[in-house]
Amino acid sequence: MGNLNLKINGDHHPVDAPDHWTLLEVLRYRLDLTGSKQGCDKGDCGACTVLVDGKPELACLLLAGASEGREITTIEGLMPAHRAAGGTGADPVQDAFDRAGALQCGFCQPGMMLSTRALLNEEERPSRERIREALSGNLCRCTGYTQIIQAVELAIHETCGEPVEHPAWAPDQAPWGDAVSTVPGRKGTGSSDTTQGEQA
């Protein structure tokens, strides 16, 4: 058994790691949870964001040894949690990011989606300003953030049925294909066949 016992995505993981290893290093190189990314080495970019007791924190600045006893959620944990709750497909945040064009290189996005997930767990209908604030610790170099914010608003829209603005590039149509995700207890989140939706 390992010298550490970490609770990650609902499971207890015994793991052997020297004291000077960060949580990020343990996730990536000991547990093969490589969805948490490393971009800056030292807390400047947010790519390594994980949820610790539900709040976004930087795994590159957390000592693995000091993370015992905390509930850690990585990007790999979202879809299983969504499925366990009776949903289909991926977490609606993941699905919305994919459909709204928020994933270009995708490298910053696991952190970005976890920050989004934490925000939407806390607030049902955050304003655009609040979304910008909540994501302001996650650097993206590809998108300029507009499609990311649209993705978050799409996820909100589908959860709450709030109206969502169409982007300038799709003035006469809903910009996004149908969701592959369904959420238990909610109807009308779309068909489960993306390709038919896209090509209809």
Binding site: R28, E76, A90, D95, F97, R99, G106, W176, V180
Partner: peptide, 21 residues
Amino acid sequence: QSMRKLEGLDKATGAAVYADD
């Protein structure tokens, strides 16, 4: 058509493999 990206959901779920993975 604004189709989803080929590898979009892999990236969204953390399954996509990058060099350091």
